[in-house]
Design a protein around this nucleic acid. Structure first.
Length: 319
RNA sequence: GGCGACAUAGCCAAGUGGUAAGGCAUCGGUCUGCAACACCGCUAUCACCAGUUCAAAUCUGGUUGUCGCCU
């Protein structure tokens, strides 16, 4: 590369599977290095969804500014395009405060969009188009829709499994809007380098331990009133289809409230879904390039982790 | 002690002579505008021993274990 990393803008990312302890550590890190936190979490953006998203509380923030939390109503749609836009704005603002941006959160897809500056065109989501295609797939089968994609974009057709109707539709939508295959666009974008001089920390711990933490956290959420929180939202919106209500912890409790599950069944399902989610996150991070894994089990305490992170950031000239 | 039933992967569970369905969990993976989404892949030789048969998870005998009933 022609521009040295040190000339690029600094950025720190702290991620990891759900319930590993990101929030706590990110705040400690922010204090240590004069940082501000940008949440990379697709659910914490929603106001009044606090318990189920394990959202940071004001007290926990302890004066550290947090961005991208509580910026949407639960019946609004949030997506990666919005995330990227808001995050880039926040990063600029943080620089102008002479602070260090720390992206903390578990949505790897979102992080990627900012880190590698992936471009999204301005066009709106074609919701009618999506609905129409969904119905088509339901009526004639997923394979029929996949065949349709093959006609316009064989590369994507090869890459996307026919059963993955959502992705097939997005590829179709992209083609309808731009007149070129999404596979071409993806290929171009995948060659982007990062405009940042960054450290990408992935916090992890032994699998058994992680699962125990998850189970425990779910129990605590229940004790803290998760059912009431979901009940309030469910009564307000009456719409389990909302993106926000599809979040883990919300969809399961709604099933309970609707009498489809007992509370204990809903709880088990919620724990299971959370474990699955954590596993998928881990898979994502494993594939991500240039990440620094931090195995909590190898450190005595958070301070030792912070010192380690600090020294790596220093070496890279980020701090 | 007697009688009866059952014994298939971590769990549930099909399969009654022809070379081990399925579901869940586990594990691995995909992902470029719904991503806490959506999707894909992998995982057993049938309690043990002996016998019948070209061929047994499937039949016979025995052993062990579990459950139920009876005294």
């Amino acid at each position: 590369m022609s521009i040295s990393d040190k000339d690029k803008k600094p950025l720190i990312i702290l991620t990891g599977p759900t319930a590993v302890g990101k929030t706590d550590l990110s705040i400690k890190l922010a204090k240590k290095i004069n940082g501000e936190i940008i949440s990379a979490d697709s659910m914490q953006v929603y106001r009044t969804m606090d318990i189920g998203t394990a959202k940071v509380t004001k007290e926990e923030m302890d004066g550290i500014p947090h961005h991208l939390i509580d910026i949407m109503e639960p019946d609004e749609e949030f997506n990666i395009y919005k995330f990227k836009k808001f995050t880039c704005d926040s990063i600029d603002k943080i620089y102008s405060n002479s602070h260090m941006p720390i992206i903390a959160g578990g949505t790897g897809f979102y992080i990627q969009s900012v880190l590698y500056d992936i471009e999204f065109d301005e066009s709106e989501v074609l919701s009618d188009f999506r609905i129409e295609k969904e119905e088509y797939a339901k009526k004639y089968g997923a394979d029929a829709l996949h065949d349709e994609l093959r006609k316009v974009d064989p590369v994507s057709a090869d890459a996307i499994h026919p059963n993955n109707v959502k992705r097939v539709i997005r590829a179709l939508e992209y083609f309808a809007q731009n007149g070129k295959p999404i596979s071409e666009h993806n290929k171009e974008q995948s060659q982007n380098g990062s405009p940042y001089n960054f450290m990408y920390f992935v916090l992890t711990t032994e699998r058994d331990n992680l699962y125990k933490r998850i189970d425990k956290r779910v129990d605590i959420m229940l004790e803290n009133g998760l059912v009431d929180e979901v009940k309030r939202l469910h009564e307000k919106y009456h719409n389990p289809e909302l993106l926000s209500m599809q979040g883990i912890g919300y969809k399961e409790i709604i099933e309970y409230l609707d009498g489809k599950l007992t509370l204990s069944e809903a709880t088990d399902l919620l724990k299971k879904n959370t474990r699955h989610f954590a596993k998928r996150q881990l898979t994502w991070f494993r594939r991500e390039k240039n990440v620094t894994w931090i195995d909590k089990d190898k450190f005595f305490d958070d301070n030792e982790i912070l010192d380690y992170m600090y020294s790596l950031c220093t070496q890279k000239g980020i701090i």
